[in-house]
Amino acid sequence: MTPGARTQAAIELLDEIVAAAASGGAAADTLIARYFATRRYAGSKDRRAVRELVYAAIRQAGPMPVSGRAAMLAVADRDPAVAATFDGAGHGPAPIAPDEPRAEGGVAPGWLVEALTASGLDAARQAALVDRAPLDLRVNSLATTREAVLEQWPEGAATPLAPLGIRLPNGTAVESSDLYRAGLVEVQDEGSQLVGAALNAKPGKWLVDLCAGAGGKTLQLAAAMANQGALLACDIDRARLQKLPPRAERAGASIIESRLLNPGHEAEMLADWAGKADGVLIDAPCSGTGTWRRNPEARWRLTPERLQRLRAMQEQVMAIGAGLVKPGGRMVYIVCSLLDAEGTNQVVAFLARHPGWVAEPIEPAIGTGHGPGRRLDPATHGTDGFFVACLRAPC
């Protein structure tokens, strides 16, 4: 592909990504994969170059752009090499006309910037939310040690905060590696590892991962429990939960029971665990503002109305989780969001509704203290953004 053809391909992809963001369609990564699946003529260098153009445009645009061309013109304004490809030659984009619309720059739509600022994030920490994320792994302690993995993966380095984390160069083909196939490592951001460890899982405990998804934190809990005890992984999303059993088998995590829940009937489907769990982990559905480095177009999908629906879901899952915890047991609430509406405010409201419950310190301490919990953010800690709080049930 010529440089112009690469720019035109990026514009076409950006049009699809903008439309999907507006309609709740597929994520950018999925759309890019589909695009090149039907264009076999594009080599690996072409695919990589187009992908870089697409994500440069997404990260640069705060509010959702009116079109893919508007997004790419904003990139061209800063990059003369990209601007030169707008010459109309071959398969390249048409020349730039006077006064064509450009995507508006910034971190996010205005209402979200206001919400982040009100949540205590200054401009520098907001800007870091759309930087490129590192590639982190968690070593499976059921099967090996971090030192042993680093001996076989010398290009990696120990993460600075998580004791089982390894950071690799971006672009490393992890899932095709022998170490991954053998279940020795899992892809997991360092921040996710830190908040997942806040439940302080021990062998022999009865634990519930209430919003398990595909099971990243479930596998982390199973390893910390040394495959001793009971571990229930639940979710209402069949497609995501179905990914857990093969992952557990690969990792040698034998104590996990998966349970698909019907929305609105979670409590009755978990009646056999009511008041019995030593600990419940709630990695609640949220806006994902802390993961924009990985999914920057998610900024365009979030609306005040969707945020309100997510907050209602968070309140519901906390109530369900509280019903599973035994007297004196613990519940850890996590959101990969930096909005106080989903983090500290939710915990404060939960404590007001549940007399006798208390927030207690997370040991060892992680991140920065924030209200009744702790917070991690990309600029300060080099991780994805998270809020986490540990809540103790009355005895």
Rank of each mutant, 00 (worst) to 15 (best):
T2Q: 07
L13Q: 02
G24C: 09
A28T: 11
L31C: 09
F36A: 11
F36Y: 11
E52R: 14
A57L: 01
A61F: 01
S67L: 08
A74H: 00
A76S: 04
D79R: 14
A84Q: 11
T85P: 03
D87S: 15
G88L: 03
G90V: 06
P101H: 08
R102C: 12
E104C: 06
P109M: 13
V113N: 07
V113R: 04
A115Y: 13
S119N: 14
G120A: 12
D122Q: 14
A124H: 14
R125H: 15
V139S: 04
V149M: 06
L150N: 01
P154R: 13
T159Q: 05
A162P: 02
L164S: 08
G165F: 02
T172Q: 09
V174L: 08
S177V: 00
D178Q: 06
Y180S: 04
A182C: 00
G183A: 06
V187T: 05
K202C: 09
K202L: 13
P203K: 06
G204N: 04
W206Q: 05
V208C: 07
V208P: 01
C211A: 14
G213D: 08
G215N: 05
Q220F: 05
A224W: 01
N227A: 05
G229N: 07
G229E: 06
D235Y: 07
I236S: 12
R238T: 11
A239D: 13
A239I: 10
K243G: 05
I256S: 01
E257G: 06
L261I: 07
H265R: 15
K276L: 06
V280C: 02
V280A: 00
L281P: 02
T289H: 13
T289F: 15
R294N: 10
R299V: 11
W300M: 10
W300T: 12
R306D: 14
L307V: 15
R311L: 15
M313V: 12
Q314V: 05
I320E: 10
P327Q: 01
G329M: 00
R330Y: 04
M331K: 05
I334W: 07
I334F: 07
G343H: 02
V347Y: 04
F350E: 00
R353T: 03
G356A: 03
E360W: 01
G367Y: 00
G367K: 02
R374I: 07
R374K: 08
D377E: 13
H381G: 11
F387A: 14
